[in-house]
Amino acid sequence: MIKKIILVLFVTFFNFNSFATPTKIMVRAKAKDAKFIGNSIGGAYIIIRNQRTGEILSQGKTKGGTGDTSLIMKTPRERNINITDDKTSGFLAELDISEPVFVSIEVFAPINKKQATVSGSTTLWIIPGKDILGDGIIIEIPGFVIDILTPRTHQFISLKSIEEKSISIQSNIVMMCGCTISDGGLWDANQIEVKGILKKDGTKIQEIPLKVSSPNLFEGSINVDSTGNYELIVYAYHPKTGNTGVDKVNYIITP
Rank of each mutant, 00 (worst) to 15 (best):
Glu106Ile: 14
Gly134Asn: 12
Ile48Glu: 09
Gly185Val: 05
Leu124Gly: 04
Asn82Gly: 01
Gly136Cys: 04
Lys211Ser: 14
Glu94Lys: 11
Val27Pro: 00
Pro255Met: 11
Glu163Ala: 04
Leu92Trp: 04
Lys160Leu: 08
Tyr45Leu: 00
Pro151Thr: 10
Asn190Ser: 10
Val194Glu: 07
Leu9Thr: 12
Ile162Arg: 08
Gly184Cys: 07
Pro128Phe: 12
Val234Glu: 07
Gln115Tyr: 12
Ile167Cys: 03
Pro215Leu: 02
Asp188Ser: 07
Ile197Gly: 04
Ile132Ser: 10
Phe91Met: 06
Glu106Asp: 15
Gln51Val: 00
Ile37Phe: 05
Ser70Gly: 00
Ile132Pro: 12
Val101Gln: 12
Phe10Asp: 09
Asp183Pro: 04
Ile205Asn: 12
Val194Ser: 03
Ile2Ser: 07
Arg152Cys: 02
Gln59Met: 12
Ile41Val: 10
Thr69Met: 00
Thr69Pro: 01
Phe36Val: 04
Gln191Ile: 08
Lys200Ala: 08
Ile139His: 07
Ile48Tyr: 08
Ile25Phe: 02
Val249Thr: 15
Asp86Val: 00
Ile2Gly: 14
Gly136Pro: 14
Asp147Thr: 10
Ser168Gln: 12
Asn243Val: 04
Phe36Glu: 03
Asp225Thr: 15
Thr88Gln: 01
Ser104Val: 06
Phe14Leu: 13
Met26Trp: 15
